[in-house]
């Protein structure tokens, strides 16, 4: 994983940002001692990475989130330690940002700090979401997120899925879409993420080069 020390994960809401961020943190922990995940989602009170605090504790990953210690509140409170996590040269830090431009706006509070260091900002695309299922629509969201955050997207992530029913075709269609977005914006594709069981059936070499297999940590067993 050759990404920069600070990795910011953005996208349309429902694109799978948090699921990717959780998987990314766990993967990163296999290679680095000091991994911090910052839950910056102050928009949506459901399905946030802080719900997985126990999992992160077990894995030895530090979690930073709202300083109001309750997974369920929707008060937009950000603790001072976020700045520390961003600037800490000894840590690999992941910022799991809220969805849409409105979720990304919180980044502008830290934009000057972030611009002073090396960072990657990923834009997660799910081609099965009606709001980002064409190149134009996806780019509109990408640019709006850049404007709201004051930061530049440095990599695209194809995360096209229909949850547990995802097929190889979904990943391939998402790949074509993400390729178009990459072509239009000159932003490289960084990862192609897919469920582990789907990865086994992918033959497309372009996809396999950048494959990032994921587990569904955020979905309960009874969810589809």
């Amino acid at each position: 994983m050759y990404d920069r020390r600070l990795v910011i994960i953005t996208g349309h809401y429902g694109s799978g940002k948090t699921e990717f961020a959780v998987n990314y943190a766990i993967k990163l922990k296999e290679q680095f001692d000091n991994v911090i995940i910052v839950d910056m989602d102050i928009v949506n009170p459901y399905f946030r990475s802080r719900e997985k605090r126990d999992l992160f504790n077990k894995e030895g990953i530090k979690v930073v989130d709202s300083n109001i210690k309750n997974v369920n509140v929707d008060l937009p409170a950000l603790p001072a330690e976020i700045s520390g996590a961003i600037l800490n040269k000894n840590a690999k830090t992941i910022l799991d940002v809220g969805g849409d431009p409105v979720g990304a706006r919180v980044l502008s509070r830290y934009a000057e700090d972030i611009k002073s260091i090396e960072y990657d900002m990923f834009f997660v695309i799910n081609g099965n979401r009606p709001q980002t299922n064409t190149c134009d629509k996806a780019i509109k969201y990408l640019r709006a997120i850049e404007t709201a955050s004051g930061l530049k997207v440095t990599g695209l992530i194809n995360n096209t899925h229909v949850l547990k029913d995802t097929s190889v075709e979904d990943v391939e269609r998402g790949h074509e879409l993400t390729k178009k977005v990459s072509w239009e914006t000159d932003i490289p594709i960084r990862y192609e993420s897919a469920l582990e069981k789907v990865v086994l059936n992918i033959n497309n070499k372009e996809i396999l080069e950048k494959i990032f297999p994921i587990n569904l940590y955020m979905r309960e067993d009874w969810m589809s």
Binding site: Y13, N128, P130, V162
Partner: peptide
């Protein structure tokens, strides 16, 4: 075709 939607969005779309 099937699309992925959040329950609240589905209310509006429907």
């Amino acid at each position: 075709a099937k699309v992925l939607m959040k329950g609240n969005e589905a209310v509006g779309a429907a």
